[in-house]
């Protein structure tokens, strides 16, 4: 299932047109989640769709992230979420108390309309997106029989 399709049309459409657009749209969903429909989970799911498409259309050699990379991404996402959540507890706040993150700011505003709270929310969303993308892509790799260790990892 993850062998390259061999068709130049499938390869071109997937590589040049669909995968870059899907990734761009995922980042739009991630950043725009505050003002419209979207957020970390949806962005992660869309990114996972790009990862799976790269495996289906381009094959194992040309895919965009390796299996080990996906597992590392999932763990890193969980770590980003946990650290962003725990960090305010060392500065007098509570768990996930974004306003107390140790970021230099005057009156909670870093610059322009960027507040400490919005940076914290974005870090959480980024962590969720990385985690969802990594887990969904790794699930696909597991189902199609990819190796979990050895030359594939990294």
């Amino acid at each position: 299932m993850t062998d390259p399709h061999g068709s130049i049309i499938v390869n071109f459409i997937a590589r040049i047109m669909m995968i870059p657009f899907i990734i761009l749209y995922a980042f739009y969903v991630l950043v725009h989640g505050e003002a419209g429909p979207g957020g970390g989970f949806q962005a992660g799911a869309v990114l996972a769709a790009a990862v799976i498409l790269s495996r289906l259309a381009l094959g194992r050699e040309q895919r965009i992230v390796s299996t080990g990379g996906l597992v590392i991404l999932a763990v890193a996402g969980l770590l980003v979420y946990a650290l962003t959540g725990v960090a305010p507890m060392f500065f007098g706040g509570e768990y996930l108390d974004y306003g107390r993150l140790p970021i230099p700011a005057t009156d909670g505003i870093v610059f322009g309309r960027v507040t400490v709270r919005s940076i914290g929310v974005f870090a959480i969303e980024l962590g969720v997106a990385m985690g969802v993308m990594g887990v969904l892509g790794a699930m696909f790799d597991y189902l199609t029989g990819a190796e979990w260790s050895g030359s594939d990892a990294g």
Binding site: P37, G38, Q42, A45, A49, I52, M139, F140, L143
Partner: peptide
């Protein structure tokens, strides 16, 4: 709309591919 977005990405997209795999 938020839930619909998640449903169409996961339900119709990723879940289908995982089940076919």
């Amino acid at each position: 709309v938020d839930v619909a977005f998640t449903e169409v990405v996961l339900g119709a997209g990723v879940t289908g591919v995982l089940l076919v795999a």
